[in-house]
Simulated scan of single mutants.
Amino acid sequence: MEPAEIVADELLVKRCVDGNDRHSFRLLYRRHQERVRQILYQLCDPLSLDDLVQEVFLRAWKGLPKFRQSSQFSTWLYRITWNVATDRRQILARDRSRLQTIAQNISTQHDDPDPIQLDYQDLVRRGLDALSEDRRSVLILHDLEELPQKEVAEILEIPVGTVKSRLFYARAAMRKFLESSGVQL
């Protein structure tokens, strides 16, 4: 068998589909799991990362027979990642809404922590959380994960022009948030 580094994703996918080859899928997992984890970290609660990564690859394994070879495996996988993150955020938003209602009935409201006391990563996370889902996704995939705009467009199933527009407004909002939090850019 060829060394794992030189076997293209497309060949590994073909092996998986043709022969239900778990070894080839294991190579795909090893190759892409860290990037999937990074994307999920930016989009979701870090405490559930392991479960979410497993969910992404489970969906990928089950969906391989339907995978169209017209796009890159990584683009398809990142689309699954985005879908898993979206599903997770919807569940958390629903749960958070319920908890907020309960908390408002029980306790008084506390002020947000002083932004100066937060470290930079927490501040960036808060800034990302303040963005709309559409803008946050584009910013994370393009700026943090360094995916080309064309690939971001494929993952999110939107035109490249929409990616550019959302990226522009997301960066502006993030810049404004960081400046209002005392970060000099």
Rank of each mutant, 00 (worst) to 15 (best):
L43A: 06
P115Q: 11
W82E: 08
L27A: 11
E133P: 01
L128Y: 03
D45W: 05
A93S: 14
T101P: 00
D129K: 03
L27I: 10
Q38T: 08
L58F: 10
A8I: 03
H23Q: 12
V17M: 07
C44V: 04
R37E: 06
S97E: 13
T108S: 11
A8F: 02
A93P: 01
Y41H: 13
D21T: 08
Q109E: 15
R15V: 00
R59G: 06
F73N: 07
L77P: 05
I91L: 13
D111N: 12
L118F: 09
C16F: 03
D95Q: 15
L11F: 02
P115C: 05
R98Q: 12
Q104Y: 02
S70K: 13
D21R: 09
W82Y: 13
L123N: 05
L118Y: 07
R26C: 07
R37T: 05
A85I: 06
D111E: 15
V17A: 03
V36D: 02
L27M: 13
T108A: 06
D122V: 00
I91Q: 15
S107P: 00
I102M: 10
D122H: 08
A130T: 04
I106H: 12
S97H: 13
L99Q: 15
L28G: 13
I102E: 15
V36E: 02
L12G: 04
T75C: 04
A130G: 05
L131K: 02
L118A: 12
F57V: 02
L47H: 12
R126Y: 03
D45R: 09
L64S: 01
R126D: 06
N20E: 10
R126K: 06
F73I: 04
Q109M: 05
R125K: 05
R79Q: 10
D18P: 00
R15F: 00
R15P: 00
H110A: 13
L49N: 04
N105R: 14
I106M: 12
R79L: 00
R15E: 08
R94P: 00
R88A: 14
R31S: 07
L131I: 01
V7C: 10
L40G: 04
R37N: 02
L12D: 03
K66P: 01
Q104F: 00
S97Q: 13
G19I: 01
L64G: 02
R31C: 08
A60G: 07
Q54W: 07
N83E: 09
Q72N: 07
Q38M: 11
L40P: 03
R59M: 05
D112H: 09
Q90L: 05
D111Y: 13
V124L: 15
C16N: 03
L40C: 01
R89H: 10
S74R: 09
S70V: 06
S71R: 15
Y41K: 05
L47R: 06
Q121F: 10
A60E: 01
Q33F: 13
Q42L: 09
D112R: 07
D9F: 02
R15C: 03
L64M: 07
D21V: 04
A93K: 15
Y78S: 05
C44A: 11
Q117V: 06
R68Q: 14
R35I: 09
Q100E: 15
L11C: 05
T108E: 10
V53I: 10
D122W: 08
